[in-house]
């Protein structure tokens, strides 16, 4: 879901432009036109109601029940939420997820910013941009497996390389200390180019004369980056951060095919914990409560985004 959810979130935050052709806000159309419109949106409306709206309501409902998937759910009020507070595995999952998000987003954002500036300064080649975005188009599972092989503790090429430069082999996926940073960096590799292209598009919107003026004043590239590029890019960076942070909180695929949450829950991120609860322990009610918490976290991230973007509107040239 990464591509749509991430990309779509971007697009969703765009203000719909209403003052375009074909739109008359005061007009409700003829009866015939209304019926036609209904026919046109009917399939999408059906999909929305059955697969988005109704399950959302059910998800909230199940979070207040005890439900083992096979018998009817029984209402237990806030019991699941109370149990959450005393569940060490839940708190571990939160900790692991935050670690993952911090490492993934930290490295990815800094590197993507660097890469975007490099592209902006050096080349407009579509080929180069295609190459750097390629990892993002390959499925998570494929990427996870290739790195699982390259980072194998014994015969992976990465450890061979570490051996050449005189370092000890690292059990990347097998050690509790390395597993989360490893998975976070694998996903940094996958999302780097895509994130860089989003920032790159933002760089193209900064008018060239701003840099010309800076150059006339004798500013160095380094100084211009901090004084011009970064401040003018702030609204776009805020937007990019929200897309990537929201996606990062939902990491699942890489964990599922490499470590399956291990070793010793060291990589049991929140989404994997939900999966584990619902489909391996059949605690559907409790799993729903955990996913409500995930939902609330992501909603807060989006809320902060809106605030940030509004606060930064005046920055846009």
């Amino acid at each position: 879901m990464a591509l749509t959810s991430r990309a779509a979130r971007t697009r969703s935050s765009i203000r719909p432009s209403l003052q375009v052709h074909g739109y008359r806000p005061d007009s409700n159309g003829t009866r015939r036109e209304r019926l036609t419109a209904l026919a046109f949106i009917l399939p999408a409306l059906l999909g929305f109601s059955v697969f988005y709206f109704w399950p959302t309501l059910r998800g909230f409902y199940y979070s207040f029940t005890d439900f083992d998937v096979f018998n009817r759910p029984t209402w237990v009020g806030l019991d699941n939420y109370a149990a959450l507070l005393d569940d060490p595995t839940f708190w571990n999952a939160m900790k692991v997820t935050v670690q993952y998000v911090v490492i993934n987003i930290g490295t990815q954002t800094v590197l993507a910013l660097l890469l975007a500036v490099l592209l902006h300064r050096l080349t407009r080649s579509v080929l180069v941009r295609s190459v750097i975005v390629l990892p993002y188009l390959i499925s998570n599972v494929v990427v996870a497996l290739v790195f699982y092989w390259m980072l194998d503790a014994q015969i992976g090429i990465t450890n061979q390389f570490l051996g050449w430069i005189g370092l000890d082999a690292i059990p990347f996926f097998g050690s509790q200390d390395w597993a989360i940073p490893t998975i976070a960096l694998v996903n940094t590799w996958r999302h780097l180019g895509y994130t860089a292209l989003l920032i790159f598009a933002g760089l193209l919107m900064i008018p060239d004369h701003v840099y010309e003026a800076g150059r006339v004043d004798g500013a160095s590239e380094w100084k211009m980056f901090w004084r011009i590029t970064l401040p003018l890019l702030r609204p776009i960076l805020a937007l990019v951060l929200v897309i990537t942070v929201v996606g990062s909180f939902q990491a699942f695929d890489t964990v599922a095919v490499t470590t399956a949450g291990g070793p010793a829950d060291a990589t049991k991120v929140i989404q994997y914990y939900i999966f584990d609860l619902a489909f391996q322990r059949y605690q559907f009610g409790y799993a729903s409560a955990v996913s409500v918490v995930l939902f609330l976290i992501l909603a807060s991230v989006a809320f902060v985004q809106l605030r940030l973007m509004r606060a930064n509107e005046s920055d846009v040239a």
Binding site: M1, S5, A8, R9, S12, F48, F51, Y52, F53, W54, P55, T56, R58, G59, Y62, Q250, F252, Q271, I274, F275, A278, F284, A287, S288, S291, V292, L294, F295, L298, A299, A302
Partner: peptide, 13 residues
């Protein structure tokens, strides 16, 4: 619908 994390609807689905 974009705001709802996929896993949230996928359990009931």
């Amino acid at each position: 619908a974009l705001m709802v994390p996929p896993i949230f609807t996928q359990l009931p689905n």
